[in-house]
Simulated scan of single mutants.
Amino acid sequence: MRDVVLYLHVVAGAAGLLLGPAWLLARQRGRPGRGPAAGYQVAVGVVAVTAGLLAVTDPSLVWLLPVAVGTEVLAVTGALARRRRWSGWRSWQPHLLGGSYIALVTGVLIAETGNPGFWLLPALIGQLPIAVAKHRLAGVPAEPLAQGA
């Protein structure tokens, strides 16, 4: 059973790593990117659930629980920030969604290398694309609020 959960975890993580940039590119091209966005949210959700399952079945992985919950919270909150037009969403959304993506990258690097230095490296490197996204969003005119959003 653990192997199945681990397989789902890896496949969902890989999907999230592919769908995150696809969503970003769609948005940069002026498209809503609903498919990649939904896929990214599902992938991150599956990663969080499977990480939680792995953590409760192996006491050495209990540290995954807060990371899994935090990653999911970042992804969902980032998606909702724009949709709900929260005050300051243009500043917060890149940090929230970028943080969820950085968590996925960090997970891969830690799993593959075991090097704790990779806890810091993705966060540092991720600041540049987050800053670029914030700059672009600052220049985007306000969109009308969608019906039912």
Rank of each mutant, 00 (worst) to 15 (best):
P122K: 02
G78R: 01
A26F: 11
A149F: 10
L121E: 09
V11I: 04
L65V: 15
R84K: 04
I130Q: 05
A146F: 15
G98W: 02
T50G: 13
R29D: 05
V69Q: 06
W89H: 04
H95T: 15
V76P: 00
T57A: 14
G39V: 11
V5E: 00
L54M: 14
W92F: 10
L121T: 13
L145K: 14
V73M: 05
E143D: 14
T77W: 06
A142M: 13
P66I: 06
W86T: 02
W119L: 12
A138L: 09
K134T: 15
R84V: 01
G16A: 01
A12F: 02
G139K: 14
G88E: 06
K134D: 14
L25P: 00
L53W: 05
A131T: 09
L24W: 09
L64C: 04
L64Q: 07
G114S: 03
Q147G: 10
L74N: 03
T57H: 15
L65H: 11
L65R: 15
A131S: 07
R27Q: 13
L6C: 05
I125T: 07
L17A: 01
V73C: 05
L74A: 00
P59K: 08
Y40L: 08
A14C: 03
A131D: 08
V132F: 12
P94M: 01
L109M: 05
R27S: 11
G39M: 04
L61A: 04
T113A: 01
L61C: 02
V108R: 11
L128R: 12
V11G: 01
P36D: 06
T71P: 09
R2E: 09
G88D: 02
R85T: 09
G107Y: 02
G139L: 13
W23N: 01
A55T: 01
A75G: 01
D58G: 02
S91N: 04
A22V: 07
P129E: 05
V73F: 04
A26Q: 07
L53C: 09
G117T: 14
V56F: 08
W119R: 11
Q28E: 14
A55P: 08
R83M: 00
A38R: 15
A55K: 02
R31A: 11
A38F: 14
A12P: 00
L61G: 03
S91T: 11
S60R: 15
A26M: 11
P122R: 01
A22Y: 10
A43N: 05
R2Q: 13
G20H: 10
Q41E: 15
G13D: 00
G88V: 03
L120Q: 09
G98N: 00
R34L: 14
I130Y: 03
L19S: 01
A51I: 07
D3E: 10
W89C: 01
A123C: 08
E112W: 15
W92V: 09
L6Y: 07
P94L: 02
Y101S: 06
L6V: 11
A15H: 00
G45F: 08
R34D: 10
T71D: 07
L104Y: 13
A81G: 01
V73T: 05
L53Y: 02
L120R: 11
A138V: 06
R136H: 06
W119F: 12
E72C: 15
I110E: 11
M1F: 08
L8E: 03
T113E: 06
I125H: 06
V11N: 00
V67K: 13
V44L: 13
G88S: 05
